[in-house]
Design a protein around this nucleic acid. Sequence first.
RNA 1: GGGCGUGUAGCUCAGUUGGUUAGAGCGCGUCGCUGAUAACGACGAGGUCCCAGAUUCGACUUCUGGCACGCCCA
Length: 1132
Amino acid sequence: MFRSVPANANFPQLELEILEFWKEHKIYEQSLERRAGRDKFVFYEGPPTANGMPHPGHCLTRAIKDLFPRYRTMRGYYCERKGGWDTHGLPVEVEVCKELGIHSKEEIEQYGVEPFIQKCQQSVWRYMQEWERLTERLGFWIHLDEAYVTYHQSYVESVWWSLKNLFDRDLLYQGHKIVWWWAQGGTALSAGEVGQGYREVADPSVYVKFPLLDEAGEKTGTSLLVWTTTPWTLPSNQFAAVHPELTYATVVDVESGEKLILAEDLVETVGQKAKRELTIESTCKGSALLGKRYVPPFDYYYKAEGDRRGKLNGGGEQHVAWRIVAADFVTIDSGSGVVHQAPAFGEVDYDVLVAEQSRFSDGEGPELINAVGPDGKFTSEAPDYEGRWVKEADKDITRELRERGILFHLDQYLHEYPFCWRAEEDPLIQYPRRSWFIRTTLFKDRMLENNSKINWLPEHIKDGRFGNFLEANVDWALSRERYWGTPLPIWVCDKTGKMEAIDQYDELLAKPGVTGTEVWAEAKKQRPDLPDDLRVHKPYIDAITYNSPFESGGRMTRVPEVIDCWYDSGAMPFAQWGYPHQGRKEFESQFPADFISEAIDQTRGWFYSQLAISTLLFGDEVEAEEGAYREFPHPFRNCIVLGLMLGEDGQKMSKSKRNYREPNEIFDKFGADALRWYFFANQPPWTSIRYSEPAIKDSIPEFLLRLWNVYSFFVIYANIDGFDPVGQAVPDGKSADVRHSLTYDDFANSKGHRPAAQRGELDRWVLSELNRTIAAVVERMDAYDNYGACQKINDFVDGLSNWYVRRSRDRFWASDKTSPEKLDAYWTLYECLLSTSKLVAPFVPFLSETLWQNLAGVFGDSALQSVHLCDYPASDTSAIDATLSERMRLLREIASLGRSARMNAKLKVRQPLAKVEVILADSAHQAWLEEHDDLLRDELNVKKIEYTKDAETYIEYQVQPNFKRVGPRVGKLMPAVKKALTSADGGELLKQLTANGKVVLQIGGETIEFDDEDLQVRLQAKAGWAAAQGPTTVVVLSIELTDELLREGHARDINRQIQDRRKQLDCAFTDRIEVGIVTDSEELRRAIEENAEYIKGETLADSIVFEALAGVEPLECEVAGHKVLIYIRVIR
RNA sequence: GGGCGUGUAGCUCAGUUGGUUAGAGCGCGUCGCUGAUAACGACGAGGUCCCAGAUUCGACUUCUGGCACGCCCA
């Protein structure tokens, strides 16, 4: 006996039971053990940060991450799933600062770096429990207790190894990075923080004259007209930039006679602004101006360096600065088309400097000029303004320019400018900071090559967002002037400035003359519970110094920076194993990944950091560890890039807007399977989806409940009829302790089990559909297309429920429990359900497990304990019958048309009809349909189905060209062809076609032949018939009703009333009853008498009498316009 | 301002290499079924496939240019 199935399934409750079962029997662990030694399917977990609450978007990521490993495991692969946590970085520091009520780095230093990072380490686990709970509840199988953690010593040392590798290969260097700088707080702000602080302000907009020099260095009398909104950057000017493709005009200021150069398109605008009359004297391309020198507005640097020339790489010399250079970012949207360049205070300006530097030989090019200190005040290099806050100095600088006669025009400019988000009055400035970089640009081509080998889903990521990002690669700014992060493992000699990288803590301790280890020892003494991993972090690591190998008496001290936490996560493919200090074997066997998935916001994050690090470390034929060079792609082969999940209102999910529900709420209300199915089955994973509770809820009736109902139906009747699949189910020769996946073969010797070929058409049809579905699902899932796979599954379950079960009900209800047809029905449905539960297991692991446990449970220890231990179903191609499939489709179409026609004629299905006539455009399957019309007769409740030959009575033929075939052949004649065919007599054309095998028409002066396949025939029902038409089929109802048919209809009405009453009385499915009917209508009485056997059979009535039954409450109802009293007594 | 993506029914979304009746679910309407039953099914209404051009015999589909929204970056 199967366990009886609750009528109303409580999915969330069932899921909790399954979770318990999995835990108790270690099903996940077993599923891995069963695949030990098999081919590997490698999965990488992109580490989430556990210091924020998980939201539904995280469910999506985790669901996809679960789906494919589960699928592959069932397909026979060994798929380890090691968890991981991202723990470093600014967000963690910000959280701790919030908690402490402090902001600036100064305040952190005051509070103490040591307690601060201790707090960071604890904060990282704040929402750990919620994350673990979500992971488990969603059914995401992953080893959380063996998760890698980015702050662990082994992980840090692994990252150190990779950095040492880069350092030793001269791929790590120090340079400047222009950052958004909060001068008052002495700290750089992250992009996110800067983004929060934009607001509209009015800044000065100044047009300044830069006098041009000739070859000899003499003033030419012409000036560049240069525009800027930050006058305070003018003392640090190094270049003036023009766009090489723009046209520039030399104009004469009519009033003063001065000559100026500016973009031609801006002459009028600038003239109007300054209220000057400017007449154009000549024009030239920007490219013609390149290299010309000018006198900058301030001579703080120019005085000494103005005449300096440097050697160019290609030979020759050039002045290092104060000349015109080309830049693509120059526009004519505002200003003068000539842009002042102060590389210290603008990222694009800085890039111009770097480009210039690269043209000169080493040490010969321009140095960065910076007259401003980190406090935002002018330094002694600009003595006139020394000590003044730059923004405040703008006015005086402008005044000085005016006094010196080089200010052409001044006005106000409204624009968006960033301010500090925690000190609203403080404007941010762009400012250069010493920073460490990785020379990723050297590897651009290698990274692109690597990228080209990756299978991106969707495909456009490869050459789109990700490819473009790689094309525009700049060196990776690695260092951060922060506290909680992987320390940059570089020690500097205080005598020589020479450096070395260290990749292991023990190696550091073994250095000669090492001191400073007591700082950690002391801390550990004070707080023995401190995790040892902290010793490789600030401030402890900073305390450790040792004797310089470069010069005696020198000491080696670590540089102060920590690294970008994206580097941490990108190092995960090897660092998760502590490679190469340990875990070599694991790394070798788990690299590269077959599959990763994250949302699209990781393009520049984890996707890039992994690819870059891997390409640099393992992608070039470097002299390195054994076999460092690897074929691309690595470190991942397939990557599903998920869309972002938006809130209910289509906006970004936000806690404060409350535009989404907590994941737990969804689990409690609808269950994890509903959520998972919603994710997998409703759209390709890369489309961004809007969080929608109704849509999640819909998964239940749409899919889960439909499958559940079939399952429930099966269990109810299998138990009633005592259907027992066990018998000799386990084939001889197989050891009793082998547990089975229960495939078709396992039943071959069972009682009442017939080979599919011997079963009826409907059974063979559904088995054919099943195997087609299996093949399609496997094909889709191997291509990482969960959406396509779900559609196939959904179609199958729909067919199983709404056609197979519906049309097989009679067989399940048949009284002869041993008839082969009845047993066929049970076996077929049983096999379908078992296969389906395996098929859907990766998608809805809970529901499938529930089904499996009950359906396979009757086998006890002969069957596998969990569906997740089974092999994924394999398609039996011999069971697939494409012709049958097509025929059944046609049959269903006819049934549908029949219902449609009934609807139009307002003839309910309970009323039997004498006949329908079916007209087929193509008679290929007619004979088969005729043989199987019992199904149709029953479905449509008609006595007879005829396939009409002489169709012209009911319909007209409309002939259309097969555009795909005929189009290319006739080209421009197509409209004429269409017209000729549709306006011709369709019947006539068809007769020609049948007689000659072709139709020949004169169209547009040409003779055109059409064969069978060139023409498409549509049927059109003529008016006046109760008919419905499909593209190739028409169904016509015969609507004359005889008295006999009417009485049969009445009997059916009575039947339905009795069934209704049974339900009200809460009858068991097998309860037998006595029926009494009281009515005045002779007609009804006759209807019942004539159909008594039918009613008795349907309603399990032992007797029907025409009188009241004593002691029974009657049901009063109306049938065919007559009042009827129905008495029902249950026989107990 | 740049890159990428999206725009299809009231809502949420599909739409395979261009082929002439553009689909699903929900919602709505009408009806049916009643031994899966607090389920289920059928049928129907509902569309300027964002707009404008171009290519083509033919464009939701390809191209160009707009518009709107989203993401990433300036």
